[in-house]
């Protein structure tokens, strides 16, 4: 049996209290949401927080709802909530497709959006989804709230803009009428982290790409995205040659690391292929040609 080091446990009942506890216990304290990233690391003693602040009981942070021209997702929304959300299905199929291939039902039942983004694992699928969609993330501290771009959120692997006495409370997505979106992932086995994964949305106007976003996970794409590919595609027809070129540009923007999932060359190739497929499918959906 794997045995974590000893730690104190506190249960927060409000965001304010959670932040106060973080403040009180200092940098050795740690929030725990679904625990599916943190607890395995604690069992292996790769993480040894002195205090765990449990935020699972915080009320009203598990929502997925439309607020004006945006979709707002509470930080405690679980993977399973995103998978089942009618709001997301209506506006962004990318969520359903990504969630289908994140971990397994056991992890999805507990794991949260906030935990996924704050874990900042380079392979985290939701980071790629949020990057593709140009999400904005709401961070709260005792001093108040601030909003940052998903595309600037990751400071490095396992590091984000969230400070020691702060917490992520919400994800906000712009609604883009007519957008098509899709997610593609190749893994060695169901429930494994991606070898590479890519998501995209496309908005068409008069058959041309009016707006586009690309997100890429697991292959070292800076901020989980590929702006060069997006810029290239904007204003163009989503034809196969154009998609192929965008995919090539996206692949070029990656910086994969070799591990047993694949060589650098393969991962880069795969990233390009998945970007192409995600864009193709997103464009087809935007054109109303694919479900």
């Amino acid at each position: 049996m794997q045995t974590p080091a000893s730690f104190e446990y506190e249960r927060a009942t409000s965001v304010e209290q959670a932040l106060a506890l973080l403040e009180q216990h200092g940098p050795e304290a740690c929030l725990v949401a679904g625990g599916h990233s943190l607890l395995p690391m604690m069992k292996l003693r790769l993480a040894t927080p002195e205090v765990l602040i449990d935020i699972n009981e915080l009320p009203d942070l598990g929502y997925v709802r439309v607020e004006g021209s945006e979709i707002a997702i509470g930080a405690l929304a679980r993977h399973v909530d995103l998978l089942a959300s009618p709001v997301l299905r209506e506006h962004y199929r990318i969520f359903e497709e990504a969630e289908h291939v994140i971990a397994d039902p056991i992890v999805r039942n507990r794991g949260t959006v906030g935990g996924s983004l704050c874990q900042a694992d380079p392979s985290e699928d939701l980071s790629a989804v949020c990057a593709a969609l140009g999400a904005r993330l709401v961070i709260q501290s005792a001093a108040g709230r601030r909003t940052v771009e998903a595309r600037g959120f990751h400071v490095g692997p396992y590091e984000t803009l969230v400070g020691p006495a702060e917490m992520l409370v919400e994800v906000r997505l712009p609604i883009r009428p007519g957008a098509g979106s899709a997610y593609q992932k190749v893994e060695r086995r169901a429930g494994d982290y991606a070898i590479a994964a890519a998501g995209a949305f496309v908005v068409l106007e008069g058959g041309m790409v009016a707006d586009v976003g690309v997100g890429i996970a697991a292959v070292g794409a800076p901020q989980f995205t590929a702006p060069g590919a997006e810029d290239y595609l904007r204003g163009k027809e989503p034809s196969e040659p154009h998609l192929a070129e965008a995919a090539r540009l996206a692949a070029e923007a990656t910086a994969p690391a070799v591990d047993q999932r694949g060589t650098v060359e393969y991962k880069r190739h795969l990233a390009g292929e998945l970007v192409r497929r995600a864009l193709r499918s997103a464009a087809a959906r935007a054109a109303g040609q694919e479900g």
Partner: peptide, 8 residues
Amino acid sequence: LTPCQVWL
């Protein structure tokens, strides 16, 4: 025969 091995 992982995806990478097949591709290689």
